[in-house]
Nucleic acid binder design. Structure first.
Lengths: 209, 209, 209, 209
DNA sequence: TATGAATGAGGGTTCATTCAT
DNA sequence: GATGAATGAACCCTCATTCAT
């Protein structure tokens, strides 16, 4: 009856289950969409009866919220952990980070974009605020580079969205082992982004146009 | 009296109902997602009982299919109708067309990207083939411009996806009457795209790098 | 505008359709059961839209009623038409007639037994009365033969039911081209029936039992 | 306290519910036919909401299957339990058993004959194989008796069907408290069956015919 | 923490039938 | 006599969730 030991064990087991619930839900939501996934399916993946899920998450919505919140939090944490080197252009750093992270976490990224509308208003606001924080990192980089003359950006906010949309599209078609390596994709996109914000390009534009 | 042209009233009424079903479904699917919309809701929007929907579409899936197919078809038709002028760079033509069309038909565009996974395999293949045809228009422009030296594009296929992702992201945040007019957005994005594929930009890149 | 001619033609066409409705319903009811058959299926078989059925039969129930009534009527008519010969035992005549008719009209017979419970009370009474008339033919034969000493029947009413159940079971397993010809089956069953009602059999019974 | 035997209360309750579902479905299917009975009706009989039925049976079809399988199984088990006495003719034993059992379990018997066509193919095959086993008991008796000269049977397989059809028809008209007791019916049918297979009857037949 | 039974609502779809044309 | 559109009810089944055990 070693009560003192039993409780932590049980708690550990419970946390383990919770993690497996998140993992299963992530895959299912990414594949079929939040609305098309049933708690029964998640429970079956976890190897548990539907009722047991409610010991870990009060509602299906909370599973979605947990997935999206932890994704945004992980994303911001990972960004902070990328090495900052004075010689590297910060835009390069952001673009490479964004592509790498989004290819590694394709499912999380995918549901973070696709399932926004399935968040209840309060949860939506929470997630959106995190997303803005992330996007503002790029906006800051663009504004600073623009002010220093390294970039030519007409509207940092619009450019932020343009770049992020462009980069975030990659996981929708990239397949490991395909024609291009991840490194090649990084290089290709980095080149396009650099040029898109390059200051001298305006002149060349006139020459072409 | 135009007797020869007259159709039975009931048939005309039925076609009108079918159109209203599509209209209602489009709005609902765009707002809540295919899986989260019920036939009952669509019927209520149309002002008809649920069973009546099945006089016009055999299944819910067929409504989605009809929406997506007609969107792709309209898109390709609209592109063919854009005026071709020898003085205009074809990339400009494509970018402006794409932005305008996608802002005008935000709902159609949105479900065409979001609901792909809710298409049954056969329908998915059909839609994907239409989408490829559209994307290939841009790829062709890029390849031709690249060959003639007007653009510098390392991989026309990747660049196509990058540009389309960038442009297609616009309707997710653009709101009529917001800070920027549609014209301004067109100009901003066009500038970015031009620069991203500009041949001289490579030099500036070296200068910045 | 030969009105006088047109109407009969139209009526003829209508009667033709009505017949095809009955034919289609007969097959469907026999295969799947009244409750499992939809008016749409019948209409499709006939090559007509569901609404058109209601020009010929006011309800689905009326189709069933028409099928069963005409079956009973045809059955009684056919019996009356069988040749009566003084040399033939009337039981032989009945048994052979019953088997032949029931093998020829397997579908009609089948639904006449299976769908009794799907008849509305008034229709049920009507059909049951016809069925009794038919069964009473056999009862009469048995009673008369019993009175004259040709048969030994303890309870003509029970024997009637026993014989009819036995004979009516044939179409559930008989398949044309099977091991036994229709003639052989007739002979086998006739032998069994004759023996079952034979007066001397009681003795043999004592000898065996 | 019998701890080792105790089951969770909920499990016991569930099994009880399952039994009541079968009981309710049996009555309903026997009265109206499988196709005409709704899950809602069964649920109402059981005193439960429709969805709860699916905790016990995955589909409506499975209820039918369970009813028919357990009927066939019970029937075969009951036959094996009938006392075998060397003095009793085995045909007598079978006839009396069949009549008694079929009058006691009129509903089960009825749906076992009526609802065969509503079984999905796999289930149909399963049931048919059980039915054959039962019918083969009688065929075996007839063949053995025929070989030993106690019976005269031209075709044991046909005779089996004839006898079973005859006997199985009884519950369609027998009503408790009617003109005849169950015992009287048994005797009447037994007499007919004995005579139908009696060896000496052939002679009497010649005398009559 | 996990189970099995249950709920109450609602899912997509089909039904027999009506009716203006 | 036939059509196409519509109705209103009902179909089987699944859903997220609750709760006693």
């Amino acid at each position: 009856m070693t009560i003192g030991v039993e409780k932590p064990l049980s708690r550990a087991k419970g946390q383990e289950t919770a993690k497996r619930v998140l993992r299963a839900a992530l895959k299912r939501f990414a594949d079929a969409g939040y609305a098309a996934v049933s708690m029964r399916e998640i429970a079956a993946d976890v190897g548990v009866r539907p009722g047991a899920l409610y010991n870990h998450f009060p509602t299906k919505q909370d599973i979605l919220r947990a997935l999206m919140l932890s994704h945004m939090s992980d994303l911001l944490t990972a960004w902070k952990k990328t090495e900052f080197s004075p010689e590297t252009d910060p835009l390069d750093r952001f673009v490479r980070f964004h592509i790498r992270y989004h290819l590694e976490r394709a499912d999380e990224v995918f549901i973070s974009y696709m399932e926004l509308r399935n968040l209840e208003p309060a949860n939506f606001a929470e997630i959106e605020s995190e997303r803005s924080r992330y996007e503002f990192i790029l906006t800051g980089i663009l504004e600073e580079g623009s002010a220093s003359g390294r970039y030519a950006v007409d509207d940092a906010s619009v450019t932020t969205r343009a770049i992020i949309a462009m980069l975030t599209g990659i996981p929708t078609w990239y397949r490991e082992g395909g024609r291009l390596s991840e490194q090649q994709i990084e290089d290709l996109y980095l080149t396009m982004v650099r040029k898109a914000v390059a200051p001298l390009a305006m002149k060349s534009q006139r020459e072409i146009g």
